[in-house]
Nucleic acid binder design. Structure first.
Lengths: 336, 336
DNA sequence: CTGAAAGCGCTAACAT
DNA sequence: ATGTTAGCGCTTTCAG
């Protein structure tokens, strides 16, 4: 990469002072400079192929115009839409999103957090909230502006953009009750996540309200394997439920696998409801009944909350809850 | 965010010159400084919670330690694994990956390219290669170091990490021939992408070699909808093939939809082979026979090629081709 | 082994 | 409306 033109080169060619070039090229300050001069500066800049060096600008203005986004694993299909939503808000405002993965490890998260801080990010979006979230605590103590997305913080009063988990579970339960289901198992996501807790509590409350025989079964992680293992325990435990409300779609997929492995059919033997409506959930075998969470919009809202926090410099512990919608497909049917 | 400690603060506390702090804290130069001094500097740094400002360092060293990654759409399930592969190579080497989306628009790509250049990225990884790829041409002319991943460049001699597309198609054809299929349609991806072209040529050559009756049908994009539309044309066109080799899994999913919409069964009426083995391809209805492409490893190789280019400053127009593997599942069966 | 000094490219007071 | 000056935080010669 050959040496690139600087503001000094442009100034020389346009016959003005570097400071003037800076003012002429910045939309906020171009009002302070003669239109004719602006024209000359622009021409010189174009001729030299000048591109502002945002590193130098960032050093001077102490704002990098980049936002760190911390996700557990980009490969989990709910995160790409969230990230795209974040970018769709940030990009038009001149920010870039620096996305990093933690693989669910607090240790890794601390490392990537450090690297984001070194890069002088203007703010952080955590998709990794959980109880005892030490990185969020550290960020909070360092006065780093941040928000949570999808999951709420388990440890600090950062704003959050989340889906209406409780409503999603209530809708699932109502749907199952209407189909005649009575004995229902909830495969609860791992403890420590706000999503797991809210969904679990909504399940218990919902069963009580509808007079259903609900049982909560733990899972070790939000993964297909964990869902399969937990469901296999349910199956071998005797009394089969007629329906399963899974903590998310991955767990529901694990339920599919366990059912198939035990020559049980879905929905004929057991109905299954997922959560998230991850991409292609409608193409699974059987097409999955699940709760659609507006992940893209969650990303947009999180970015908006963060930008407001950055601009106003006040940490408003607001929570934005977006509505969810039960999508009924082929994995649920009448009890028989 | 309160004012953070700088190297000057550390120097003052440790009673040394800022230059010495810099040397003491940098692994490449710490050999030049007294161990006892290093200890004192480290203690002072820890006490102040000092974090190096990589923006300032980048300005001084004119290297940002960030790599731009340009993808069409993170929401397309083949890209997250590629991105993770890239990061897995870059992160341990101190680089960060700045991922941006183009949504397949050259205009958007030029914009994000500009923003990456302003951010002084040390190199670029394009997952967007195609014929007349103007952004790659621009990058090349600006002497920007870059590599291609998944698709080769249609316009400039940048190195590329790609899967063995031709081999994948040959394996698919051999599998279908063995099941007795004769009349086979290839749903070719849109022209202009190296993947489309290589797969299409391999299909034609493979059919000739195996004595199969192969027909190529165009698609407008690598999407489910485009696959469905093209397959519907095939179905309404009369003579139904006994098997379809789709340009990728999304197109194959579109074939599923078209078949279902016309009360045709897969694989009983038509066998279908996809390409990529995208996540959850085994959970579709029916479980998809497809060619597994090692996307994560493609990302690793691309990052490696780029780092070599950055370090040696020579653009070696190398191509790394990774092996692929046919994964046989339930969407292909004997002809009947 | 350490200090001194310069400067990466830019912006923002201040002065004119 | 434009020029002048200083300096963001760091690394890297050059001296000593």
């Amino acid at each position: 990469m050959s040496r690139r033109a600087t503001i000094a080169d442009v100034a020389r060619l346009a016959g003005v002072h570097p400071g003037t070039v800076s003012r002429a090229l910045n939309s906020r300050t171009e009002g302070q400079v003669n239109p004719e001069t602006i024209r000359r500066v622009r021409a010189a800049a174009r001729q030299l192929g000048y591109t502002p060096n945002s590193i130098a600008r960032g050093l001077r203005t102490s704002s990098s115009m980049t936002i760190g986004v911390i996700v557990p694993d980009l490969t989990n299909p709910i995160f790409p839409p969230i990230v795209r939503g974040i970018e769709s808000y940030l990009t038009p405002r001149g920010y870039s999103a620096l996305v990093v993965n933690t693989d669910g490890s607090d240790e890794t998260e601390r490392l990537v957090f450090q690297s984001l801080i070194q890069r002088q990010v203007d703010g952080l979006i955590f998709a990794t909230g959980h109880q005892g979230h030490s990185t969020a605590t550290e960020a909070f103590e360092l006065d780093v502006k941040a928000v949570m997305v999808n999951r709420e913080s388990g440890s600090v009063p950062y704003p959050a953009a989340v889906g209406d988990d409780a409503q999603g579970i209530r809708a699932s339960l109502a749907h199952l009750a209407q189909l005649g289901h009575q004995r229902i198992v909830h495969l609860a996501g791992p403890t420590g996540f706000s999503t797991s807790q809210v969904r679990r509590e909504a399940f218990v409350a919902g069963c009580a309200a509808l007079g259903l025989d609900g049982t909560v079964v733990e899972t070790a992680a939000y993964t297909v394997d964990a869902g399969q293992r937990s469901m296999e325990r349910v199956i071998s435990g005797g009394e089969l439920p007629t329906a399963v409300v899974a903590g998310n779609d991955l767990l529901a997929l694990g339920v599919y696998h366990a059912l198939r492995g035990n020559a049980l059919r879905c929905p004929e033997d057991v109905s299954v409801v997922g959560f998230n409506d991850m991409p292609f959930a409608g193409d699974f075998e059987p097409a999955m009944t699940t709760v659609r969470v507006p992940h893209f919009d969650l990303g947009v809202e999180a970015a908006r909350l963060l930008c407001e926090e950055i601009e106003t410099s006040v940490i408003t512990a607001i929570k934005v809850v977006l509505p969810v919608e039960l999508v009924i497909r082929a994995s649920t049917g009448p009890v028989r």
